[in-house]
């Protein structure tokens, strides 16, 4: 089911949280709503499922305008950030709750609950109460409850935020598997870019109630529209260097780089975005500086290099440690992958 938000706006009293937001989620697609805390992700999600009344614009499911349809009749499944399981009900009752509300027969409910429990692999826990489950198990129950009545839309509000790293990794692929198996249209709210990139077909980046860019993960990584997007994707994050561009030569007090002719500008201040994987010893455009920080991450090692004018570049390299803190190095930048932004942060 396609979801369309048209000129959507939401304010709480005098506080304008979202203004004039347009967003389309294709049928069967899983879209990530990615953005910093407080940018309005949950607000958007709550508007889609009908918990919040919208203050402006329209929400369409397929061709159906659901703007004023109460959430009871929207047929959306929601996994809340804190799971919101019913503490007084058993796991089976929790999962079967939407069906019980619809007054389906007990036998039917039982059958579907077992089917659902098998899908999310919690068949052995059906008699327990939510309090007797681990965070990851609760999360699966919440997912099962959201999916059991075959919703047109699945909304996930930071479902993995409370899980430990290993479980998070496991659940990422699990949710994606279930979403693809059921072919359901889904919105995943998250502020974790790895989650967004690894799980979703497309990513919508939000900032202060606005959508900054919508694109497929790799497309967005390679072609961010602004320094905000570039800074949001990638771990370790991209490094920015301020300077001026004259012709195809970038200059700051610490470095001088020849850029491919693509972007040309005369004397204007710009910002270069250099991802850590594009700053390597073997690359051509050498810059030198002093290593100020070394972090071994096991398979890879992360270096911070302070240029002569004090700006920092980051480099991520293979296993072997090549330089220690305080050492001077002269490493190269791959000019083809440099991102250039104007002083306001827009991509040139």
């Amino acid at each position: 089911m396609r979801i369309l938000l048209k000129n959507f706006g939401k304010s709480f009293g005098a506080v304008n949280v979202i203004e004039n937001l347009n967003l389309e989620i294709h049928d069967g697609e899983m879209l990530a709503l990615l953005g910093p805390s407080g940018c309005g992700k949950s607000t958007t999600l709550f508007a889609v499922c009908g918990i919040h009344k919208v203050t402006a614009g329209q929400i369409l499911f397929g061709d159906r305008d659901v703007t004023h349809v109460p959430s009871q009749q929207r047929n959306v499944g929601v996994v809340f950030q804190n799971y919101a399981l019913y503490p007084h009900l058993s796991i089976a009752e929790n999962i079967g709750f939407p069906l019980k509300i619809r007054k389906e027969s007990a036998a039917e409910i039982k059958r579907k609950v077992h089917e659902m429990a098998d899908l999310v692999q919690i068949g052995a826990l059906l008699d327990r109460r939510p309090a007797e489950l681990s965070g990851g198990q609760q999360q699966r129950v919440a997912l099962a409850r959201a999916l059991i009545r075959r919703p047109d839309v699945l909304l996930l509000d930071e479902p993995l935020a409370n899980l430990d790293a290993k479980l998070r990794l496991e659940m990422r692929s699990e949710i994606r598997r279930i979403q693809q198996e059921t072919g359901i249209t889904a919105i995943l709210v998250t502020h974790d870019q790895v989650e967004a990139m690894s799980m979703c077909d497309r990513i919508a980046i939000m900032k202060q109630g606005q959508i900054v860019q919508i694109a497929a993960p790799m497309e967005m990584y390679d072609n961010p529209v602004s320094d905000f997007v570039a800074g949001f994707l990638g771990n370790p994050p991209i490094a920015f260097v301020d300077g001026a561009l004259t012709g195809s030569v970038f200059e700051s007090s610490g470095i001088r780089i020849e850029l491919p002719s693509a972007a040309q500008r005369n004397g204007g201040p710009v910002k270069l975005g250099i991802r850590p994987e594009n700053f390597q010893p073997e690359f051509p455009q050498k810059v030198s500086g002093e290593v100020t920080f070394v972090e071994s991450q096991g398979r890879e090692t992360l270096y911070d290099v302070r240029l002569d004018d004090g700006q920092i570049l980051r480099s991520i390299q293979g296993h072997a440690v090549r330089a220690g803190v305080g050492e001077r190095v002269s490493w190269g930048i791959s000019p083809d992958n440099i991102l250039i932004f104007d002083e306001k942060g827009a991509r040139l």
């Binding site: 009908g50 918990i51 009871q72 499944g77 804190n82 919101a84 019913y86 709750f97 939407p98 509300i101």
Partner: peptide, 14 residues
């Protein structure tokens, strides 16, 4: 918790 009311609403409860 308010989320229980929200959850029950989207689960279809009047």
């Amino acid at each position: 918790p308010g989320s229980l009311f929200h959850a029950s609403e989207v689960d279809g409860a009047s």
